[in-house]
């Protein structure tokens, strides 16, 4: 029930938006995510966008994993540390 799927916002009309789920379009509510814009990636759960998906953070996580063994024991997982990267 906590399943949420990433999709891309392609159109917004007040609280309603059209979202692209890998080629399938669906109307969702963006009421829980004010300030969302066309082109944003969001997580959709039971017809509501519940959070943004940040491509830059995704890239940083992948980068962190790919060079993990080269790091000192401090993880760089925490956002305050990551933002200094």
């Amino acid at each position: 029930m906590c399943l949420a799927v990433p999709s891309k916002i392609i159109e917004i009309n007040n609280n309603r938006a059209k979202a692209d789920f890998g080629g399938v379009h669906r109307t969702i509510s963006v009421q829980l995510l004010p300030g969302v814009k066309v082109g944003d990636y969001v997580l959709v759960h039971t017809g509501f966008a519940i959070g943004k998906v940040d491509p830059e953070e995704a890239r940083l996580t992948l980068k962190l994993v790919s060079k993990m063994g080269d790091l000192s024991p401090s993880r760089l997982l925490r956002s305050e540390q990551r933002s200094k990267e």
Binding site: G51, V53, D54, L60, T61, R75, L77
Partner: peptide, 10 residues
């Protein structure tokens, strides 16, 4: 720790 920073904020 947050290993899901692309979607989760503190």
């Amino acid at each position: 720790e947050n290993a899901y920073t692309r979607s989760v904020l503190p």
